[in-house]
Amino acid sequence: MSRWIILITSMLAAIACVEMVRRALRWRLIGERWVLAGPLVRRCTWPAFALAAVATANTLYRPGMAEGTVEDAIERTITLFMIGCVTWLAIQAAYAVTDVVLDRLVTVEGERNRRARRIRTQITLVRRVASAVVILLAMGAMLFTFPQVRALGAGLLASAGIVGVVVGIAAQSMLGNLLAGLQLVFSDALRLDDVVVVQGEWGRIEELSLTYVVLRLWDERRLVLPVSYFTTNPFENWTRHTSRVIGAVMFRIDWTVPVEELRVELYRALREHPLWDQKDWTLQVTDTLPNGLLELRALMSAADSPSAFDLKCDMREHLVKYVRERYPEALPRLRVDMT
């Protein structure tokens, strides 16, 4: 009985030691100099508690503390928990380290934003794949603790061919999505926060996982698609090389409108608008319609697609107001020739 009391007391003492380390990291080391301390405290506290308790039990437990089959069950349970806690802590520690990089990449703006989003996407997907591999290895190690299935565990760890066959037969769709996700990420065809048009819907890539992509639409709806969709179907990526977008506004107006004055007014309004990036603009007559109207197209550039959309709406409203107030005779109308 005294051995069990010592064992339980030692486990509580180990947990208390981890708690003291956590408090030290939280109170004294979190800051600009110790950027890793915060993510470690946030992600690794509970895995560290569990590992400290299980490691203490694994160290202090001795044969003979229990009797019969109970002793074998206790030893195997401690071993299984040990493997599970080490795996849990390793995954969370890896996530903590990568969180430092991801947090810094979120604040990157300007021309470096595209490269930052590419790195974020690759790190996010790679650490998920790595976690899946670590969990698979941990499951194989757990199988070694059972003599009846040790051969299966050895095969799982040593034979990638058997694993491939089993997984390929049981989860062909999931494996296809996984490979498609890796292809998308490392070919730089799709990144987090990219602006895309899919199935006629405009939105941003909100989440890119191993098996699916979440698209946040302009009206806050979410479109969830399998990753394999983006490798087998065409889609528009407006931020493939840069986030800069050129917007177009179309007008159909009477022939009597002075196009040159409209062009001057468009340029004046663009120079005063904060969303114009001061680069591209034009106003052109793109067609003459049979009903006596001209088709005008105004082009203007903006830093990103949301800015381009707002800029187009503002310029459309401004030019409509300008024509209505200055040249009302040029508004679209239906002509009838009475003979």
Rank of each mutant, 00 (worst) to 15 (best):
L184P: 08
E207H: 11
L125N: 00
W34R: 07
E75C: 07
L179Q: 06
R22C: 05
M82L: 14
A302V: 02
T256I: 13
V35A: 13
Q122T: 01
E19K: 08
T339F: 08
R150Q: 14
P234R: 03
V35G: 05
V227W: 00
V97R: 00
E272K: 12
W276N: 08
L311K: 05
G153M: 06
R216I: 04
L270H: 12
V41F: 05
I123W: 01
K312D: 06
T339N: 09
S131R: 03
S173T: 10
K312M: 13
S2K: 10
L296M: 10
H241I: 00
L182F: 02
D280M: 10
M11E: 06
L102Y: 01
T69W: 09
M11H: 02
P234E: 07
L51W: 14
T211H: 01
S159Y: 05
S305D: 07
D314M: 02
S187V: 00
A303D: 14
T9G: 15
S173G: 10
E329V: 05
V133N: 03
L184S: 08
F49T: 00
L29I: 10
T79L: 08
A16K: 07
Y322G: 04
R222C: 06
T107R: 11
G153V: 04
V264Q: 10
V197C: 10
A16T: 11
P258Y: 08
L223Q: 12
R104E: 14
I135Q: 08
D219E: 06
L215H: 13
V54D: 09
D314T: 03
V259R: 07
P290Y: 08
F251W: 06
I253A: 01
Y212I: 03
G38L: 11
G155R: 11
T145P: 05
L217A: 13
L192Q: 05
R268Q: 14
E260T: 12
S301D: 14
V149K: 02
W46F: 13
I135E: 07
G200S: 10
K279W: 12
P39H: 09
T107Q: 09
L80R: 09
C313R: 15
M20R: 11
V213M: 05
E201G: 01
L293A: 06
L319P: 13
R43F: 15
D219L: 01
W238S: 02
Y322A: 04
G68S: 08
T145V: 07
I253K: 04
D314N: 06
A302M: 05
G176K: 04
Q172V: 01
A13K: 09
V249R: 11
E207N: 11
T239Q: 01
A52H: 13
A171C: 06
T121K: 01
L137A: 15
V227N: 12
L215N: 05
